[in-house]
């Protein structure tokens, strides 16, 4: 369908983008890869007067090493996140999850920052970012601030990014050498998950970090399972017993793809599988 008419701005710097945002306020929308925004515009679920395209800001693209963290520019595509050697080495979980996002065409367009800013609870990148303790660098008229993952996801499609701010980059603390697996459960390929589990483990198992996708209005940590796994040995039975705690404190939706109780069951099963695979069992 045809979107409502809008003006198009293509700033070449973050400052320019922020000042454009400031100028147009509520009437403006940021455009990253457009893979979520354009469907929304085309279905006329939203009708901004101005669209500010971040595509021309080269500083937002790319991945760099920053000591104890790697830093992923907001405009880095899913495809680049998946294939990047720094990501593979220090945050393998992200590479695995990015590989599971949609299909190849969408992975070449959609961006890491766009997906996280969009904050779809069924999106594949929130849970791994949360599990890895990502820090979100947000720029606004007053400068730059950093928000912890646990504070970043506020609700369905809602984050800590203010109306006059943009997400510029995401710092991922290094998890060098951690095993990782993203277990995504779908009905058809190239779709958002019914439930997915992002698991990364150190050793087998010194420490486990587990994120849950689509088990509530934001990405969630499977804290009880993480605690049960810390220091446990990676046996099938042990892991499954810990995974049985994965649905604690979750509040998943009920829809055509599954009722809440089924999703909780899936979370338990998939957590077991994800952890076992991450641990290389």
């Amino acid at each position: 369908m045809i979107p409502v008419k809008f003006d198009y701005l293509a700033p070449t710097s973050v400052e320019e983008a922020i000042s454009a945002l400031g100028q147009h306020g509520d009437d403006a929308k940021i455009l990253a890869g457009g893979q979520s925004l354009l469907p929304v515009l085309r279905m006329r679920l939203n009708a901004p007067e101005v669209v500010i395209d971040l595509g021309g800001i080269s500083s937002l693209r790319g991945i760099r090493d920053d000591g104890d963290a790697i830093v992923i520019g907001a405009m880095t595509t899913h495809h680049d996140v998946r294939d990047d050697h720094l990501v593979k080495e220090h945050a393998l979980l992200l590479s695995k999850a990015a590989a599971e996002v949609a299909d190849s065409q969408i992975r070449h367009r959609g961006t890491f920052g766009g997906a996280l800013a969009h904050a779809d609870p069924a999106g594949d990148l929130g849970a791994p970012a949360l599990a890895l303790g990502a820090q979100f660098v947000i720029a606004g008229p007053g400068g730059t601030r950093t928000v912890e993952a646990s504070d970043f996801f506020v609700d369905l499609f809602e984050t800590a990014i203010g109306d006059d701010e943009i997400l510029t980059e995401v710092r991922i603390p290094k998890h060098t050498g951690w095993g990782a697996h993203y277990e995504k459960f779908v009905r058809v390929a190239h779709q958002w998950p019914i439930v997915a589990v992002a698991a990364t483990v150190k050793g087998s198992i010194d420490e486990a970090r587990i994120g849950l996708t689509n088990m509530g209005s934001t990405p969630l940590r499977a804290t009880a399972s993480e605690q049960a796994l810390a220091g446990a040995s990676a046996t099938e039975d042990g892991v499954r017993a810990a995974a049985d705690l994965a649905a604690e404190g979750t509040n998943p939706p009920s829809d055509l793809n599954g009722a809440a109780d089924y999703r909780q069951h899936l979370a338990r099963v998939l957590t077991g599988r994800a952890v076992l695979k991450a641990a290389g069992v």
């Binding site: 299909d103 009905r187 058809v188 390929a189 190239h190 779709q191 958002w192 055509l256």
Partner: peptide, 11 residues
Amino acid sequence: FVDYLLPTSAD
């Protein structure tokens, strides 16, 4: 097509 599930070759 998010809710009406059509398969693709990948399925």
